[in-house]
Design a binder for these strands. Structure first.
Lengths: 155, 155
DNA sequence: CCTCAATGATTGACATTTTCAACGGTTCGT
DNA sequence: ACGAACCGTTGAAAATGTCAATCATTGAGG
């Protein structure tokens, strides 16, 4: 198959060694695309995607986030959060509770079923993460997370 | 149970400390969203986005990638590459050359104007990258790139 | 107490991006 | 030479992203 006579194709890694190979934005984009795809695939059997999984996670965590906080944290438009929460609420995984301290705001809490599903989904998510980071030592894993946090939460 | 004595609002970083705070997929997504936005903003003055910048970069690098290679490398559908290349070609920044070794394939090469614009855009891109990584040492910067490469190019 | 600007959620419209299936031209193995 | 596989292209459908307008509520200042 491959290995045509001359230097025909840019070897499988000629592109990798190009300028973009050192471009952080590109590396992030590609790493994100791959991990997101893997995560979505793994979460699909639970009827979740990375997005809905994230929302469910925060609800199940008892953090009682408002939708606005959710929107900012997940970098989504508030209207997208509405749709996301609608989906989870229809499946009885989360509930909207109007915040007694500010009746404009909705606070998200997970139902028992929600916490239950989350627990299972989290295992799948963790398995994926470990699979992705198989070639990396636990210390490097933690170091990577730390550096990403710096980028993800500047200031 | 929520014996909610006081409905504490999630402090500005209660969410950060939740389960998701250690979720690699989430951190990647958020870091990617922020850096992508920063990159797009910086590239806008050159009439580029991260996507078109990437294509232009590979063309300007003399790697002579085919559109299919571009698609796989950038994790895009081939049809998206068509649109991307159309845009750059109409601005006379790149040219499609049918690969003499395989006349089905188009090889991308940058024009002089293309290389010129890329040189300028690259400066903007580098400035952004340095700004984003201001809080980390150069060694950590390199380490981050290395770890991301592992995720971005498994196998 | 009574405005009034600001805020949270929601809706609906619109643009952009993603994802697929189909098609003509070309290559390659058999 | 045949047929399967592959490249680029097109077009359409689905999913996402972006924005402005609205309602209810809040909080500040007169």
């Amino acid at each position: 198959m491959s290995a045509s006579g001359k230097t025909r194709l840019p070897g499988r890694d000629a592109l990798r060694d190009s300028v973009l190979g050192g471009d952080l934005v590109f590396l992030l984009a590609r790493a994100n695309a791959l991990t997101l795809a893997a995560a979505n695939a793994a979460l699909a059997e639970h009827g979740l995607k990375a997005r809905s999984y994230s929302v469910l996670a925060l609800a199940a965590d008892g953090v009682r986030p408002t939708q606005r906080e959710l929107a900012e944290f997940l970098r989504l438009d508030p209207s997208q959060v509405v749709a996301l929460v609608d989906g989870l609420e229809q499946r009885q995984l989360v509930e909207r509770r109007t915040d007694p301290a500010d009746r404009r705001a909705n606070v998200l809490v997970a139902t028992d079923a929600g916490r239950d599903l989350f627990a299972r989904a989290q295992q799948a998510a963790r398995a994926v993460e470990l699979g992705l980071l198989a070639p990396v030592t636990p210390e490097e894993h933690e170091r990577l997370a730390g550096l990403l946090r710096l980028l993800a939460f500047p200031g």
